[in-house]
Write a protein that binds this DNA or RNA. Structure first.
Length: 194
DNA sequence: GCTAATCTCATCACACGCAGTGTGATGAGCCCATTAGC
C-alpha cells in the first residue's frame, strides 16, 4: 500500500526532539507460548479475552491486540470471523462466541476540553511520537492507545474531507466550464440568426 | 531476518435523536502493507 508523503515528514519531525516509536516489546518464551495457544483457540479474541491475556502475561491489552494483528497477518489466517455464531469446530461455546462478537472495548467518550486538547495537539503535529502521545494521554486522562486511535481516525477523516473538497471543487469547475460553453453556443446561434 | 510498532483504508458499532451523521473501535494489508529495533 502506498503511503503519503506526510508520514515520512512526520518521522523527520519526530526524530528532531521526541522519541518516535514505543520501545519494542520482547515477549518471553513463556508469554509467547500462552499467546500462541490462545491464538490457536481463537485468532479473534474479544476485548475481555485480550484483557485476561494481558493480565496473565503481565503486559498491556494494546500489546496483545498488536500481537494478534501481526500474528493473523503472518500466519496465513485469512478467513474473516463470521458474525455471532461460528462453526461447531470452534472451541468457544456458542454463548462465548456471541459475547466475543459484541465484545468490544467500551467506546471512549471525550469531553469538550479533552477534544480541544487533542485538536490543538493535532494541529501542531498530526503524527505524534510515543512521548507526545503519552504526555497527551496523561494530560487528558485516557490510555495512550486511545490517543493513538484518535489520531489515526482524525487523520483518516481529514483526508476524506479534503478529498471530497477537491471533488466538489472539480465539480464546480466542470459546471462553470459547461455554463461558459453553453453561453458561447447560444451566442453563436444568435449571431447566425442575425 | 524476525517481528513489534506503525501506517492507511475500509468497515463495524453505537450514540444521538428518529434518518442519517459523527466518531470510536477493529481488521486487513495479496508483489501476503511499511518501518525499524534487536
Amino acid at each position: 500500500m502506498q503511503h503519503d508523503f506526510i508520514p515520512y515528514l512526520k518521522t523527520l519531525l519526530n526524530t528532531v526532539a521526541t522519541k518516535c516509536r514505543r520501545s519494542r516489546t520482547s515477549f518471553t518464551e513463556e508469554q509467547l507460548k500462552i499467546l500462541v495457544q490462545a491464538f490457536s483457540q481463537n485468532p479473534y479474541p474479544g476485548y475481555t479475552a485480550k484483557q485476561r491475556l494481558a493480565v496473565e502475561i503481565n503486559t498491556e491489552e494494546s500489546r496483545i491486540q498488536i500481537w494478534f494483528q501481526n500474528r493473523r497477518a503472518r500466519h496465513g489466517f485469512l478467513e474473516r470471523p463470521k458474525k455471532n455464531l461460528g462453526s461447531s469446530k470452534d472451541h468457544a461455546s456458542p454463548k462465548e462466541k456471541i459475547q466475543d462478537g459484541r465484545d468490544r472495548r467500551c467506546r471512549t467518550s471525550y469531553s469538550s476540553s479533552q477534544l480541544q486538547t487533542l485538536k490543538n495537539a493535532f494541529t501542531e503535529n498530526p503524527y505524534p511520537g510515543i512521548d507526545s502521545r503519552e504526555q497527551l494521554a496523561e494530560e487528558i486522562g485516557v490510555p495512550e492507545s486511545r490517543v493513538q486511535i484518535w489520531f489515526q481516525n482524525r487523520r483518516s477523516r481529514l483526508r476524506i474531507q479534503r478529498k471530497r473538497g477537491l471533488e466538489e471543487t472539480d465539480d464546480t469547475k466542470n459546471h462553470a466550464a459547461l455554463v461558459t460553453k453553453s453561453r458561447f453556443r447560444v451566442q453563436q446561434v444568435l449571431r447566425t440568426m442575425k
